[in-house]
Design a protein around this nucleic acid. Sequence first.
DNA 1: GATAACAATGTAAGCGCTTACATTTCAATT
DNA 2: AATTGAAATGTAAGCGCTTACATTGTTATC
Lengths: 347, 347
Amino acid sequence: MSTKSPLPAEIVPTLADVAQRAGVSTATVSRCLNSPNQVHQKTRKRVMAAVDELGYSPNFSARSLAVKRTNTIGAIIPTMDNAIFARGIQAFQEELGRSGATLLVASSSYKPDLEAEQVRTLIARGADGLLLIGHQRDPKVYDFIDRRNVPVLVSWAFNTDQTRPSIGFDNHAAMKAMADKVLEMGHRDIAVISAWQADNDRARERVLGIRAALRDVGLDADNLNVVETDYSIEKGGEGFAEIMSAYPRPTAVICGNDVLAVGAMQMAQTMGLRVPDDVSITGFDDIELAKVTTPALTTVHVPHREMGRRAAQHLWRMMGGALEDESQCLETELRLRGTLAGPAAAE
Amino acid sequence: MSTKSPLPAEIVPTLADVAQRAGVSTATVSRCLNSPNQVHQKTRKRVMAAVDELGYSPNFSARSLAVKRTNTIGAIIPTMDNAIFARGIQAFQEELGRSGATLLVASSSYKPDLEAEQVRTLIARGADGLLLIGHQRDPKVYDFIDRRNVPVLVSWAFNTDQTRPSIGFDNHAAMKAMADKVLEMGHRDIAVISAWQADNDRARERVLGIRAALRDVGLDADNLNVVETDYSIEKGGEGFAEIMSAYPRPTAVICGNDVLAVGAMQMAQTMGLRVPDDVSITGFDDIELAKVTTPALTTVHVPHREMGRRAAQHLWRMMGGALEDESQCLETELRLRGTLAGPAAAE
DNA sequence: GATAACAATGTAAGCGCTTACATTTCAATT
DNA sequence: AATTGAAATGTAAGCGCTTACATTGTTATC
C-alpha cells in the first residue's frame, strides 16, 4: 500500500501531474525526459518513478507545438499495391526508425491532384521532410513546399537536368539497356505496354529510352506501338491482347513494369502463345513476382531497398540543415531470364 | 499590384496573420475554417481570400492540442513486405480517407517487443484509434491502451473466446478446410511449414486446424511434422528441403502462407520434384504470387481488401463513441488450383 | 569566511489553435 | 421608435509542453 495519493482513475496524466507527484516543477520533469544529465540523479530517480507510477507519456502535439518540430517525415507513393513501393518504403521506414523519426505514408494512386492535396495534408501535419516519387508535379506544389521551407527529396528518378536533390536511378538509361538487349537478340518488331505517360515522368523516360534504342539501330522510333494503361496484371493482359490482335504482330513486347509483364504473360498463355517462342516479354522492377513465373521474367532490377535506405539517410541529413544538394544515381541491372529469346526463325 | 501590405517572406503564416489581413479576430478565422456556416458570407469570403493570399494552412499540432483529438488512426502490422498486409492496409487507408482520418502505419517485424513499443509511440502521438493484427499480446500492452481509453480493433483473426472486438476470419476453420481437402484427396503423409507459433496466434490457429482435420480422420495429430521458420520465400524453400530430406517423405506439404508455399515450390523444382505429381503443396492468403506460379497455387483465399475496408468503418464508429463490441467473421474460401492433387499411385 | 563559479531547480512566457462566454449588430415585431 | 431575439463577431482562457531567464544551493578558491 503506497503512502502516495491514489492514482487518478480516468484522466490521462500530464507533465504537471508527474511534477506534483514527484514534488518538483514541470521544467524539471521536462528536463528529466529530454536532457536527463541536466538534472541531479536523485531527483531524476524520483521523477522517473512518478512517470512509471502514473503511466505518463508525453503529449506529442503539445511537444511539437512547443519545439516547432515533429520528427515526422511524410512520404507519398503512388500505391502500396505494387510490391516495389511497399518494400522500398519499408526499407525507408526501417532506416528512419534508426534515427528516431516517424513516417507518415500516403498513397496518391498516380493522381496528381490527390498527391498535391496530400502534400498539403502532410505539411499541415507538421512533416519536417518529404519524400516524393518522381520529379514531375505542378510548380505550385513545389512553391507551397518551398514557402514552408520543408526539405524535399525525390526518389525513384534521377535526371541530371533536374535541380532538386534526388536518390534514384536513370529510368531512361535503364530501359534503353533493356531495349538494346531486345534489339541485340534480333527483334525488329517491338511493341510497348506502358503506364499512362502524361503525369508520370518515370514511365515517360522509360518509353523514351526504348525509342532511343530503336533510333540507335536505325529503326523508326516514332511509329513505335505504345499502349498506355493502368499498372495492374489485368490491364497488362488487356494491353497485350490489344497489341497481339493487330498485324503484324510484334515479336517482343516490352512492358513498363513487372506487373504489366506478368499480365501479358498470362494473356499470352490464354491466347495460346508460347513465351518466349512465339513472343518475348520483358518487365521492369524485378519484384518477387518476376522470379516465380514460368518462364521467369527478364526484367530490370531496381535496388529498391537500397534506394529506400539511402533516401532515408539523405533526407534525415537535409532535415538536420545540411545543404545536401547533390543527388545519387543508383545502378540498375538487366536480369536476363526465360521470357526473352530471339524472334522465331520461321515467321 | 495589391493595396495590401506585402507578404512576409520567410515565416509560416498563422491564424493571427490571416485574421489581421482579413481584419477580423482569430476566432472568426477559426470558425471560417471549421464551421463556415456560422460566419457571414461576406466576411467568410474576405477571410478565405486572406487564407489563399498567405498560403495559410493550419498547424496540426496546435489544433489537436486544443481539441484533444488528432483524427489519426494507428495501425501496426507485422510487415509491409508481404503483399497481403500491404494491400489490406491500403484498403484500410482508402476507406479511412473517406472519413477524413489519417493513418499512421508501423510494422513490427513479428516482434512483440517492437510492437509494444510502437503501441506506446502511436498513442503518444495521439492516435485516436488503433488497429492491431491478431489477439495475442502482453496484457500490459492492453492495460496501457485501456488506461488511455483508446479504442482498439483487432484484425486478421476472429475467435469467439476473445472479448475484444475484431474484424477477421477464423484461421482455425480456414486451415482445417484446407487440410480436410488435402486428406480427402487421399494424402496420409503430411508435413507443415509454419511461421513461428510462439508469438503468433494466427499461425498457431492454423496449425491447430490441421491437427483437428487429422484427428477427424483418425490420424495421429500429435506427431505431425511441423517446421517453423520466418515468412519468406527463401525460408520456405529451406523448410521444404528439410522436410523432404527425411524419410518417409510426405506426399503433401501444407504451408502457413503463400510466400512459404512459393518458396517450397521453387525448392521442389531445384530438387527435381514435380508438383503436384511428386508432392502437393498448398498455401494460404491467395496473393498475386499464388496465381502466377506454374502450376498455380492451391490456397485459402483471404478477403484482405474487404477486411481492411470493414475494419476502417468499424474502428471509425468505435472512435465516434459507438459501443461496437460485436465482431465480424469474414468468409475465407478454398481456391483449388494446380499444386494439389492426389498422392502418386505408385509409391 | 567571503567570493566566485557552476550546478540544480523554479518561474513564467509562449507555441498556434479552439471555444465558452460576452458583446455588438441587425432585422423582425410591436 | 422601442423592444427583442437571433446572428455575427470579439475576448481571452486554456490545451500540455519547452526553455530563456531568474533564483537558489553547493563547492572550490583565496
